[in-house]
Computed example of a mutant assay.
Amino acid sequence: MIDFRYHLVSIVAIFLALAVGIVLGTNLLQDPAIKTANEMTSQLTRANEELRGQLETMKAREQDHQEFVTALTPQLVRESLAGEQVLIVEPPGAGTTYREATEQVLAEAGAKVTGRLLLLEKFFDPKSAGVLDGLVNQLKPAEMTFPATATVHDKAATLLAATLMTTDTATAGTPSETLAAVVDGLQTGGFVDIDGDALNRATLAVLYAPDVPYEGDDAESQVAALTSVAAGLDAGGRGAVLAGAAATSAAPGGAITALRDDGEIAKRVSSVDSADMPEGQIVIVYALREQVNGAAGQYGTGAGAAAFQPVPPTPTPSSTESGS
């Protein structure tokens, strides 16, 4: 019989053999393994430096591109919207960076911004729909009627359009008779606010999509509310454009996506999903000009865009040009 000491000696011998094997193996493989690791590290470092250099080059080219477009913008939009009055509309979550840039381009195009209407979170809250509906019915003129199928936001959009928009350039830039009562009532109810002292009637409207698409159970109704406002303002004036960035507003769940998916609204309201680019701000002007001329289109780089910009109108030859 093999006694316990034999077992113990055998086990110790096995572990000793394993330890010796590990030591020998490590010594044999140490130099090649370290060399391989060093070579790989060097390759990754070089690749990273190359990519960083390419990124810096792309950033510099993009900066040059933006400066070039910005410098040409006054020439590209000059007198495109001469005499037009534009209302700016912002829902919660709309950024200010490209809105401010667009306002400058609108001014360079000859348009005047009549003011900014802020749609507050309560305006989009389904729980407040009943209150909003009652307030709209209270504030609307007696002669104003709504279709039987109109949603509460369709009704609110119709009231806002009748108050803030006009197709008559002679009355643009002046307050309507009902403006104070309607705006004050909706402000008191917590549904809207204004940036500035007052709003005057506009012929055109630019609405901005939220920087982040709506999420959650109420997302569909919230984005529908914004497209209703866009459609209502378009109907009350000479046109409307919904603007935003392709990565967000033209993505699934985005406001521009919802507008483009609604065939009826898309026939009348234009969208521009490149508002975060200098050239996109020019496209907003072109899209508004197209609206004044009675047409609409979906522009930009995102899903559903028909083209980057409207087809430019053919220039009228001046009387000083000689024929061939």
Rank of each mutant, 00 (worst) to 15 (best):
D3W: 00
Y6R: 02
Y6F: 10
V9A: 02
V12Q: 02
L24M: 10
L29Q: 10
I34V: 15
K35P: 01
M40Q: 14
T41Y: 09
R46A: 15
L55R: 15
T57W: 11
R61G: 03
E62F: 02
T73Y: 04
T73S: 14
S80L: 12
I88E: 01
P92A: 00
G95D: 09
A101N: 09
E103N: 08
G110Q: 11
K112N: 15
G115D: 10
L119A: 09
L120K: 01
L120E: 01
P126G: 07
V131P: 00
L135N: 02
V152I: 03
A162C: 01
A162R: 12
L164N: 06
T169I: 03
A170Y: 00
P175D: 05
T188Q: 09
V192L: 15
L204E: 00
V206H: 11
L207G: 10
V212Y: 07
G216D: 11
V229E: 10
A230F: 00
A231S: 14
G232M: 14
L233G: 07
A235F: 07
R238V: 06
R238T: 10
A245G: 03
T248Q: 12
T257Y: 03
R260N: 12
D261S: 15
D262S: 08
A266Y: 14
K267D: 05
I282C: 09
I284T: 10
V292P: 04
G297A: 08
P310E: 07
T320H: 14
E321K: 03
S324F: 12
